[in-house]
Nucleic acid binder design. Sequence first.
DNA 1: AGACGCTGTTGCAGACTGCGCAACAGGCAT
DNA 2: ATGCCTGTTGCGCAGTCTGCAACAGCGTCT
Lengths: 318, 318
Amino acid sequence: MDIHGQRSGSIQSVERAVAVLKLFGEAEPELGVSELARRLKLHKSTVSRLLSTLEAGGFVQQDPRSARYRLGLQLATLAGLALTQYELRDVARPSLQELAIETGETTTLSVIDGMEAVNIDQVLAPHPVKHLGWIGRRLPLHCTAAGKSLLAHLPSGALDGYLARPLARYTARTVTNPELLRRELEGIRARGFAIGQEEYEADLSAVGSAVRDHRDGVVASITVSGPSFRLSPDRLRQLGEAVRLAAAGISARLGHRPAGALALADGRPGDGLPRGVGRALAQARDRALESDAAAAGAGQKSDGCRPPVGVAGPMFGS
Amino acid sequence: MDIHGQRSGSIQSVERAVAVLKLFGEAEPELGVSELARRLKLHKSTVSRLLSTLEAGGFVQQDPRSARYRLGLQLATLAGLALTQYELRDVARPSLQELAIETGETTTLSVIDGMEAVNIDQVLAPHPVKHLGWIGRRLPLHCTAAGKSLLAHLPSGALDGYLARPLARYTARTVTNPELLRRELEGIRARGFAIGQEEYEADLSAVGSAVRDHRDGVVASITVSGPSFRLSPDRLRQLGEAVRLAAAGISARLGHRPAGALALADGRPGDGLPRGVGRALAQARDRALESDAAAAGAGQKSDGCRPPVGVAGPMFGS
DNA sequence: AGACGCTGTTGCAGACTGCGCAACAGGCAT
DNA sequence: ATGCCTGTTGCGCAGTCTGCAACAGCGTCT
């Protein structure tokens, strides 16, 4: 049962359905049955049946003409509901808007999910040159301003787990050396904001800062991003201060007390959980400490940085 | 195999996984295993394994404290990609923005999907009283301005199928009589826009108009919506004209020739499909004509109103 | 023109998977 | 401390899903 690396207590068909959906994101947006079967190394008929089931649920649509499939709008519906849960968005939105007006650049709110940063809200610049970084987009942690702001405050165990894997290179400026990155994260903690200069996408720069909640845990990051030609090193330092203040403002509204004398550095042991760790979290930690690095990712994502869950509010912003 | 109404060639586990996800939308946003099992009439262990698999894929998250589950951010990621496919959004956005500024109200772009209208883009009013109608939200076709604009131009077969089912009542003003609705749809076709006054949500009114593509098929609708106290009958008529013109503008940019002498009314037989109906569409039609009304919904959604598929662009826009 | 390659979908029978059971472990209230 | 609730996990049988092969529609090449 555990023969092919699939975690125990997992349902094969559903795993495959998930793989199908994810492939639409990684590969082309429109795929045929045979092509999917080839990439997933599954039988044509299996994929056909998977897609047929997913289509009934609205998760994929079939183009009647080409008979090929693409992602369906049911995903947007559920995504809207998923984002509703983050009351953080409602709290952050005014600051995000203010910051966008003040700087004239695009501002974004991101959280950590599965060892990646995910944008959950955004206010566009008046005249965006190019609209990158849409809501739902995932960014690597080690080479984006949003990611590094989050990475810098990860529990040390989680950080070690992340750095144990090779760091992917995207541009000439991507830092792929773990030790160099550790050095930079220290700087980010000291400075209060992170700078990302074309480390992920060419011609795109950004600054980001972490948002903390009432328990002093980092729950999100906000970033200001724009085309590099508008963002000189001087300007970036300016924006860094602005984003740091805006993040502090959001943190305060989340009940964070800025007198963080107890927040010594990283890797605080108890993590501030009130009563009992909860076995799920304990298990997640156990898994994280296993040799398998992918498990580490899955485990750590249940750690510390989970945003509060709350009532309804606006979504898919402005 | 067909014992429990499940369409042939469908995978049970995946169907169940889909049902789990949809239940998060229909019921509370955070649910426990036992509660889900009760609602879906499945075994606790089955649901636990389903959720465990979905969590590995990022489609749900488990709150470590309460051990309950909620929708995950992977949905937002895939939703972003799903929306990218609608190049219609890029074409419509300037008009949407212009219309929002001109009217001072929220403007929305919607398409038909599975016998419902789905919002795929939106520009908010400067100071929205209440942010309803987020992107991804689904609206009924028979009692919303967006829905009626789309319904009015459905092929007659599809319309008959839709009206064969009882029309749900949401407010005192909801029209639930099929004949009355038919009458109104005629008026909408003649007038060029639809009016929705608190037929779905109290204190909310809107006007909408259909967008056509180069083949003269209706592919979307745009609406202007706001609180009823700002939208008197007079104002609604004004806005109706504005939304009609804006829709015509988008249609033109999609290559629609306004001299629609060939667009006699509804129910054009050939539907303008170029060569061969394509068996998938034919099958969808056959299913639609079956007694099962749910199948009708699934079938018709593959009909006529599919938007063009295209390259990347901004999404979840500001 | 005709045939071939390609696509995606669909019965069928066997085999593996996933279900249901029961037991386990933790949390909360009584 | 006891009971009831939660969610997760071995185990064996039954049922579901897979893989095969055949079918049908399109496009293209010879």
